[in-house]
Design a protein around this nucleic acid. Structure first.
Lengths: 220, 220, 220, 220
DNA sequence: CATGAATGAGAGTTCATTCAT
DNA sequence: TATGAATGAACTCTCATTCAT
């Protein structure tokens, strides 16, 4: 009996995997093409060529061009959201250590997705209001662990009493800046150098007077 | 002779003014349309309607659509560059005062050109390499007075020995953030509040330990 | 031997029936979809969904979309042709009675196949010349029993000496009108009323002066 | 003063005429292409070629393909409606004479627009509900003068007491049949012969017993 | 200087058909 | 026998650009 049902489950699983891998293949191709030509300049034919499939097939996996854009952006933001928490957990409970680890990892993900990050800035206005809303929500979700660290830091008296919201968005902007101003920073800094320089810039602004000495090691 | 040339000069001046006012009229219309629809969605017909001229006329003043985009972006960046210096001069010679005044004014200009600023982020990849280069140069030019203030501040021992380049780009990013994340900040802050909050965030990071007390008034 | 062949025959018969039932299933589905969306708007996927089979299977039973259309139309016309004769035989030998019975039955079949009839008018131009020819032949074949009745009626002096061909095509047009102008007639007449009204209209035109009285009962 | 306003009026008039002639040119081309290939088979490129304009221009004068179809059909029906009344007035006041003249002219218009008439049957289902409604209204409008003649004839005791609505639709069907079954009738009849044959068929059905003799000349 | 009718290449999207499973 | 993923040509429609007036 299990034998009879198994094939069906397998078949379904196979299809699910195939579907998912096609989506991934197409999303990767889409980001690759968009990074060089931009969303509007990307023709569906060009995308098909890049992904090595036919144009028609794209429409089996995505509702249309805009749907593809939304999926690509959401895909990136999902990565941010899902990777941030574990990276922060890895360094323990100290709010400052957690925040710095979070920022560091955020920049690293940005570095691995330079074009995708730029994409979220360039093309989100292209989406319909619903899609835009979705993206804003994701961005806020993503910032949640950072915000929690800031709030914990303030509560523990380790950080100055600044608006956590502003602090978090500032950190995200500085992380995004690595992508947005890559033309400017790349010749001057490696990612690692960029991260350290920004931490050196930001920490003094955050740390409460009494706590500054305890985190000297984070600023070398 | 003077009699003959005078009318001509006037005619030329009239033409120059008219030409210039036509360009302005078209640029304003272009920014107005782009802010709602985006560059790619803007049809030349829509632009012509907005500017109350015929499509054909646009091509008398601009080489084409992309040329118009470049002109619009350059136009905005010119404003930044030209207004920053005077605003900083108005507060005297103190590097810290100058830097804060510069940042304050920068954000104010951003606030008056929200859509235009977003435009520079969204559409610069659309331009040809030459146009992109032009924009980067302008951005660097714009940052010059801010950089000078930072360098002066460091030289005078008023500011920490940070990379002036990084500091300036950070300040610009935080100013741009008022436009880029306007959906997030606008419900929480007025421009004035945003400026003060950011100054409170940034100054502690910049000021040398000994100088902090002297600029308490800037952070209220 | 018989033992070996019997199963095969059964198998073949099963296959034949299944083939035939598949064809029928598909034709019914096709007519059902076409009646709501039209032939050109009907996608093979929609047809497959309606028939609850896969797209691929359709091509095992029909050469393609146009082949399917021809089959659907021929199917309808076959029904007309095959049902008319028996219905006319049922009323005996009198040419007028036969003609009226034929017309009556014709309208009734039209009523049961409203969309299919409209289909023959709407889509026959879609077919290739050969297919069109086939349909014209079928229509002529279908009209044969009616024509025979008219010719018999004229020969017997019961009907006026009109062109039988014209009479028959007129009758068919008036029958088709029940489908073609259904939007107009349906709110005003039931089928039964429509048939009687048309008989009352047509009979006086057909009946020879001396015969009129004998068929009063047909006109109530 | 008049001089200043005149040019504008002329300019407007010129544009109106040009617009109208473009529409006509396109409608004629559309009917020409549709008659050979059918609406769905007609590509906008084929239409453009036939009309000797560019594809883009078509969209300046029509909202799209379906709009063009509606316009083409309406155009034909308008001709029917506008030409019927004058033709009937020309023969005087006698209801029977008027009806016959109306029918005769109706068939003649059909003969001049064979493909267009077939078009109205083939493609009206293609239109959206609003367009379909429009067409039904036009058809009813067109039938008005015929209906008036029938009603007058019945009131005057010249015609049998049949449903005028049915009579009129029957006449229209028989007129349309000249187009719908042209493949069948054309080899057998000229238009003139067809008209006379149909009049001979229909009049006996309509005329009241007493009036039959007075209209013998109409049936030759 | 100013117009806007006209162009036509190129876009996104659909869908009849095929074929490996 | 039956499937449905994959194809790619063909479709309608848009719009930057030109040019006769």
């Amino acid at each position: 009996m299990a034998k009879r049902s198994a094939p069906m489950e397998i078949e379904e699983a196979v299809r699910a995997v195939r579907t998912s891998s096609r989506r991934r293949q197409l999303l990767n191709a889409a980001v690759a093409v968009m990074q060089t030509t931009g969303f509007h300049q990307m023709s569906m034919q060009a995308l098909a060529d890049q992904a090595d499939v036919s144009v028609g097939l794209i429409y089996k996996y995505f509702g249309g061009k805009e749907d593809l854009l939304l999926a690509a952006i959401v895909d990136i933001l999902d990565a941010f959201r899902d990777e941030l928490d574990p990276a922060m957990d890895a360094v323990g409970d100290d709010p400052v250590e957690r925040l710095v680890a979070g920022f560091r990892h955020y920049v690293e993900i940005v570095d691995e997705n330079l074009d995708a990050v730029v994409l979220t800035y360039r093309e989100s206005r292209t989406l319909d209001p619903q899609g835009r809303e979705r993206i804003k929500e994701l961005e806020v979700e993503t910032s949640a662990p950072l915000r929690a660290a800031v709030e914990a830091g303030i509560a523990a008296g380790l950080m100055n009493d600044l608006d956590p919201d502003l602090v978090v968005f500032n950190l995200m902007m500085l992380a995004h800046a690595w992508a947005l101003k890559h033309w400017h920073f790349a010749p001057r800094y490696t990612v690692e150098q960029y991260i350290r320089a920004q931490v050196r810039f930001v920490l003094p602004a955050l740390l409460a007077p009494g706590a500054a000495d305890d985190y000297r090691h984070l600023m070398e």
